Computed example of a mutant assay.
Amino acid sequence: MTDNAFEGARLFGLPHSYYTVIARSYLRMNQFGVSEVSSRHPDFAEKIYPQIKRGIIPVLELPDGTVIQDSLDIIEAGEALSPQFLALPEDAAMKSLAYLFFLYGSQALLKAAMHYRWTFYPDQKEFLDHAFGLDRDDPSSAKVMDKMRSYLPILGVTEQSIPHIEASFVELLKKLDAHFSVYPFILGNAPTLADYGMLGPLFAHLGRDPVPEAIMKREAPNVYRWTERMNAGAYDVPDYIQEAPDVSSQNIPETLHALIEFIGRDYSDEVSDRFDFIRQWLLENNPDDGEPVSAKPSQRAIGVTEVRYGDGQVQVAVQPYMLYIQRRLQASVNDASDESKSLVTDMLNQHSLGILLDPQLPCTVGRKHNIEIWEKV
């Protein structure tokens, strides 16, 4: 693609969409000249859906008709177009950490995002009904929202897990707030994939829906300001009088170490249990190389399993898509210099996240024609 290949493209999505926010922020930040279109626009049903075969957003439609579905795919396509701010840092260690934060934000924070949206639906009904384009006087609207709320248990949101979800959310806010008091972005002075992955939940749900937004403003004003910065469509850092120190493999601040320690404590058991389920599923089903992950494009999960979370266990639907991100983290470390590889490996092992560098699975996940497929390792 040429450097202006995104000029005049259309991003189909919604303002409150977890994954639309990721792609939208990247495209805005780099001023690619992309217009934003609601996925409720007739063109989505008439032109986009027949190509991707499922009602999923975001989708970027290029001027030549090519469509790119998936936030990560959109960002990776943009990286080839000489963006103003590289999502993937040139520093090998920072690139690996960018993938770590993207994985955590785009996958692990789903429980908090969905809990605060749907458990508190009665407290923010007007806002959410408006976001979903529902008519308050239409009886069928209640059925739509009840269906959305019914998914909570399969996402790991239960009466037993909610206290940990809420405590974990506040702890994350506090650690991010301390970091953003010095640094405008997660990996220093420029936005990266780390920021985009974390922004999905922390803005679309947790920094926009009234109940969690109030918590964020009260507990972590620097985080709320970061959500504004990430949506500004420009380099919006006037509140930092002095430029923050560089963040690199030679200079990883304590606030960043604290965030990685938190991710390990919050996510390592769960991600290990998810890998165990996928491993067993692959042994039992032995999919062919290139075979779609699921029988239907609309079906993204391959089953349900119990995972460790907090002091207990929850049932969750397992989506192999997580491997699509994990493989990039693993490859970035494998391709790094010995010094950077040792730094990242030691850091992840220290926080029980070493399994992300080798989940010991016979397959990983790729994508072909905007659909997830199994790929033999």
Rank of each mutant, 00 (worst) to 15 (best):
E213W: 15
A190Y: 04
H164T: 11
R136L: 12
N189C: 01
I186P: 01
K111N: 07
L103D: 05
L172R: 06
L172I: 10
R208C: 08
L128V: 09
R218A: 15
Y116A: 06
M145F: 00
R218D: 14
H130I: 08
M198V: 04
D137T: 13
P153Y: 03
L199R: 03
D137R: 08
P153K: 03
K111Y: 05
L187P: 05
Q107R: 10
A167H: 12
L187G: 06
G197E: 03
L173E: 02
Y104E: 05
K143M: 14
M148S: 11
M198L: 15
P139N: 07
H205V: 05
P212I: 04
I186D: 01
P212F: 06
K111H: 12
Q124I: 10
L103F: 13
P210V: 10
L199C: 08
A113R: 07
F132N: 09
R225A: 15
K147T: 14
L193F: 02
E166R: 12
A167C: 01
S181L: 01
Y224F: 15
A190L: 04
F101E: 00
H164M: 09
P212M: 07
G207E: 05
V144C: 07
V182E: 07
L176Q: 13
L199V: 11
G188D: 08
A178N: 10
P201Y: 00
S150R: 05
M216S: 08
F180S: 01
L202A: 11
T158S: 15
Y196T: 04
W118I: 04
F180G: 02
R218L: 11
G156L: 08
L193D: 00
I186C: 10
F185D: 08
Q124P: 14
H179K: 04
K217F: 10
T158N: 12
L100W: 01
F101Q: 02
K217D: 08
F203G: 00
L100E: 00
F132R: 12
S140L: 11
Y151F: 15
A167Y: 04
R117C: 02
V223P: 01
Y224E: 13
V211Y: 11
L176S: 07
G200V: 04
L206E: 02
M198F: 09
L134Y: 15
P201D: 01
P210K: 13
